[in-house]
Structure formats: C-alpha cells, structure tokens
C-alpha cells in the first residue's frame, strides 16, 4: 500500500505517495520530475544515478524511498549555488570533462562525495570510484578532481566563478562562510543527519523548519 513520505530534495520539502520499496530514483524522476540523476542499470553498478542522501553518496536506484523519510536528498540540480557552480562542477567545466554527458551528474556527485571524505584524494582513491563513463572521460575527470582538491578555500563575498579557479575546499564549505545560507538550514528531526550537505549547504536555504 502506498504511504506518504516526506523529505527534502535540493532544499525543497517534498511529499510523495509511494510504495515503501519504490527506489528513490523513480520517485525523483517519475514522481517529482527531477531528471538529473540518470538510469543506467538500476542495480547499483553504473552509478549514473549517484546523488547524496544527508550528504552521503548513494545510488538512488537501490535506495528505497522509505529510507529517505525526513532526510535531505541532493541531486546534481541542487549542487550549484544559483548561478555559481560548485567548485567540482567548475573544475569539470575547466577540464571540459563531459562528452555525451549522460554519466556526468553521477560522476560529479561521486567526486563531491570523495572530496568530502578525503580532502586530497590519491590516485588510488580515484581508482576506487566505480562510476562508469562509456565515453572514456576518465583522464579528464582525474584532472578535474585533483584541480578541485587544489582549489583554495573560497573567499567570502561570492562573485562570479570565472577564469580563476576558486571555491571551497571540502572542509571549508562555501555555505559556512555565507551566513545567509547557513543560518536557516535546519537539521532533520530524526537526529541522524550527517550535518547536512556540507558542500551544498546553500541548498537548504529557505527551508523553514524541520518537520516530522
């Protein structure tokens, strides 16, 4: 029987009626119209769907919606701060990584998660990324990940991301330096939050209060 599930998607509170075992991927794509996460296998191996759940990398094709209750889902659409790209996205553009682009939302979300776990990823860390890219953009992804890791912490005050590589290191997220974007960010009431989407805390801007 369908149940109501409430969670946040890219900072927006959503409510869906779904069977408890419906994978998050199809809730996002078919019920919520969030099409950034791509279907590539449905069994957790291609990782084209990679997104974040409470700041942790997940494959929504194998995460039942019931596990998302009261949590924060971040997809590729929620990574940038308005017009300002997330540093990893910017590094991706700078390295001209994408070819067909289909795997790229998942690749970027995986790279953001990696940089959060490991500030200076080694080649072995990058080798451990399972995301498939059939166009073979791996060398440029490696370059982009290293470039993003090397970006100096973001200076307060914002501005347009342009020629100069800039942005936040994983441990000093932009959001924490931009008060208007962090103060209102709530923690879900289930208490299991990892502290939110550090690298995209800005996404939580505008969420009024925790629910549940």
């Amino acid at each position: 029987m369908p149940k109501k599930f409430k969670f946040f998607v890219n900072g927006e509170r959503v409510e869906v009626d779904a069977e408890a075992d419906m994978p998050l991927l199809w809730v996002l794509r078919d019920k919520l119209g969030v099409t950034g996460p791509k279907y590539g296998c449905g069994v957790g191996v291609c990782r084209a769907c990679t997104s974040h759940l409470d700041g942790e990398e997940v494959q929504p094709c194998v995460v039942p919606v019931s596990e998302c209750q009261n949590k924060k889902v971040t997809t590729i659409e929620g990574l940038a701060n308005g017009e300002e790209l997330h540093p990893v996205q910017q590094a991706w553009v700078d390295a001209d990584v994408g070819q067909c682009g289909f795997c790229q939302p998942g690749q970027i979300m995986a790279a953001v998660a990696l940089l959060k776990r490991t500030q200076q990823p080694t080649d072995a860390d990058i080798d451990a990324i399972e995301n498939m890219c059939r166009c073979g953009t791996y060398p440029r992804m490696r370059t982009a990940i290293k470039a993003a890791a090397a970006m100096p912490p973001q200076k307060p005050g914002g501005g347009k991301p342009t020629e100069q590589p800039r942005g936040n290191g994983p441990k000093q997220p932009a959001a924490q330096q931009q008060p208007q974007q962090t103060t209102s960010a709530p923690k879900p009431s289930d208490g299991q939050s990892s502290g939110g989407e550090e690298d995209s805390g800005t996404l939580l801007d505008g969420i009024g209060s925790a629910f549940g």
Partner: peptide, 12 residues
C-alpha cells in the same frame, strides 16, 4: 574551446 554545452552537462 570547451564544449558549448559543458555547463548544461555539469548542472544536469
């Protein structure tokens, strides 16, 4: 030149 759709690709 970076592909013209690079930004569309990285933003989903």
């Amino acid at each position: 030149l970076t592909r013209l759709d690079a930004r569309d690709i990285v933003t989903g």
